[in-house]
Design a protein around this nucleic acid. Sequence first.
RNA 1: GCCUCGGUGGCGGAACUGGUAGACGCGCUGGAUUCAAAAUCCAGUUCUUUCGGGAGUGUGGGUUCGAUUCCCACCCGAGGUACCA
Length: 939
Amino acid sequence: MVYDFRNIEKKWRTYWSKNQTFKADDSNSSKPKYYILDMFPYPSGSGLHVGHPLGYIASDIFARYKRHKGYNVLHPQGYDSFGLPAEQYAIQTGQHPAKTTEENINRYRDQLDRMGFSFDWSREVRTSSPDFYKWTQWIFLLLFDHYYCRDADKAIHITKLVLLFEKYGNKNINAVCSKGIKTFTASEWNSYNQHKKNKILLGYRLTYLSETEVNWCSQLGTVLANDEIINGVSERGGYAITKKKMTQWSMRIGAYAERLLNDLELIDWPESLKEMQRNWIGKSIGAKVFFQIQDYEETIEVFTTRPDTLFGVTFMTLAPELDLVKKITKSNYKKNVEAYIQETKKRSQRERISETKNITGVFTGSYALHPFTGERIPIWIGDYVLADYGTGAVMAVPCGDQRDYDFAKHFKLPIKNIFKDVSIDKKAYTEKNDTIIDDSDFLTNLSYKDAMKKVIKVLEEKGYGKGTINYRLRDAIFSRQRYWGEPIPIYYKDNIPHPLTLNDLPLMLPKVEKYLPTPDGAPPLGNASRWAWDTIKKEVVENGKINHKTVFPLELNTMPGWAGSSWYFYRYMDSKNSKYFVGDKAKNYWRDVDLYLGGSEHATGHLLYSRFWQKFLFDLELLPVNEYAKKLINQGMILGNSAFIYRRPGTQIYVSKDLLKNYDSLEAIRVDVSLVNAYDELNIEGLKDWQEQFKEADFEMKDEKFKVVREVEKMSKSKFNVINPDEICDKYGADTLRMYEMFLGPIEQSKPWNTSGISGVNNFLNKYWRLFYKENNWVVTEKKANNNELKILHETIKKITSDIENFSFNTCVSSFMICVNELSRLDCRSSEILRPLTILLSPFAPHLAEEIWERFGNKKSIVNEPFPISNPSYLVEDAKNYPVSFNGKMRFTILLSLTLKNDEIKHAVMEDKRTSEYLHGHEPKKWIIIPNKIINIVF
RNA sequence: GCCUCGGUGGCGGAACUGGUAGACGCGCUGGAUUCAAAAUCCAGUUCUUUCGGGAGUGUGGGUUCGAUUCCCACCCGAGGUACCA
């Protein structure tokens, strides 16, 4: 009887969905909870390819394993369904993004179901559904209503801040705020009108409006965050990015920089990913130093990580964008400076990166005064100094910093060496070691460490500076000029943003005619006929009367893609709750994610933003924990194996791989991988039918075969290298696909897709089936298993259990294969062996396992059967079976992996044929026995 | 440049705290079965060899009775990041 995977898989898919087999228990289950989360997919138009399910298969195996282990498992799935591709499709076709998104979701669901995932679909979430984004908008309102108090080191309601202002002004308030907020006293605050107060408060809110330089992508018509830009071009589409000033909503993630950094210690995430977040946060410890400017009432504030080199300063450099530059430029230098500023503006980000070796800058004509020596220090501007890092100004110490050194050499500025016994003839000395500082007044003869401490102390005493910590992490821009995103729940009154309230939510996306920006450049929401907070919904009270006529314009920007994904994992806990984002009972029961699986490409985007929101909601005591994911695993990508053919320029002649060396210049053309067989041979007829351009093609072949050139790259529709999981499911079945994807290699690793090994896994499953069936007969017996068989079983249980716990699923598959090979060699048909083995296999090949389980006569699904436990007594082995190997003349070793007593070991060794030959009846001089391992015997 | 991870047969990859390197699968070779094929089963498969061996986990050193594993230096690859003061 052949294993008929088609009907069997279909049967169990239906059974599972009918019986809601994978529904997590309600939050009052007595079982311990386990929450396994996958990063939810964006439902794109091209469907799933074999790379997508890799992580889902791994998490599904673990989820099923945990169910067998007696856990109440929450394993949900949903869709990150707001996003750019649906919107661009809408622009091209006029179809509403909701419609295409819905279609794509249905396709995804079909594909996911085919693979036998044990998702609890009753908890599905979609970020684009109003029931969901209602709460995303609500969290935005919470951020709007809070500020970050540095003393309490947490977010606090803004009304508390207002009380403080009313009593004390803002001078001694230790809160995170925007740059450029002026100090005021309590009486000044109380004299301000509401408009001015609101404006000031905006500078403290955790989400705030500000005029910022943003990464503008004109092709996409929107602003992009730093992590959405790769090598100076947009991640999606690869379009050019320019800098543009716009008023944007931002999130004050910088307030949480220190906590985001420190709490990495608390979570079990991959070290490389933590390192990426650490670099992205980019903490540097140093000092601010104030320099008076000669002839002006202005001070330059610089940030430096090397205040110990303060006496090596020979010039200063300011970022050209700084407002201060215009103020302090001497009249006869104005022309040069203006020209330079214009020049910098023109150069795009990309050029600035690619031309890093070009040293440019101009002198302003002004001088700063050294705080200690009073020396005159020339002030330059240069675009190697960035306006938005630190203070946008550096004190240049050419002897201790390579860029300052190059700048000084280029413009023939003086270089002062303040390091004892160090040559700086060729390059700057940037090491921070025990080198002694020289020629530096009170720092002379001190080491780096001591000088740092001393200089900060003196700077602070004299008021010349202050020890400071700086972060590279920028506040996250939150406005997108797009249609297909969450509307920001804000209306404007006198140009000041006002929040809606929870009762007003969800603020639904309006219908629009066009998805492009309006003719006057406003975002697509500007196309909505009545996008305003009007009298129907909000009654405005003026002078004690309800004013039914006042209409306030609503915010036109929408939220970025990461908004919904920053908290969706809590919604799964209680996805139907209409009163609250997640009910108390559910969140206190499930608390956090025990295991999170997803790609490392989200390291500095989603995985950082979601930690930020988590901490914020934790501060508000809305969530029970400070970090939401205890453990995270990055699954690697499955790469495509693209195929190329080569054409002679200007002709229709294509050259086979073996003949390429005969030609110098050939054009490479991608062809669809489905036209190529396992031996890289091209299906020529297929190619001619595939695209018009190949109709008349001619081929130069060797041995009547045309070979393509293979190249490994990311799997994508545009590269014609996509392998669809449906094809594999049709041909081999879902269980084979699941096991094969695991067998391909460790889950963390990226690897190219390659079907050549799939038959091995398929053979295994058929072989497994044949343990139960022989010529259409069920051959399992109730006969007792013998010791040898039990040994195989218990070794396999031990191996599989520890490998699953370590997420080493590739070796699990190997262990199954070994086990089944041995059992079929022994012709073992004992149910005592085959029953537990089937439970063992069930996480990997669930359809097959269920089917066999039923044929054993079980009425219930296998999913909650207890996982077998290995019995160590079956693992005790006969010491005589261990090979003894001799190395050297004086000693030999015998390998043992088990718990034999020392006397038993000695006995076994002495019994060994080869040992006795060597010993000739003499006792060894010395026994060195390492438990469970090896023994060394000296004689 | 800096940070992180990696380098093992023809290929994907095993090897737990140092202890039989190459598990398992693919591919390849031979055999059984078959009219034949598919499927299945069995045996072999790191390289080299004068069939005794010898060499071997990127390269060169070191520690050790013993190193793929630990230490030092270098080479190569992948990912991240970059005028970050």
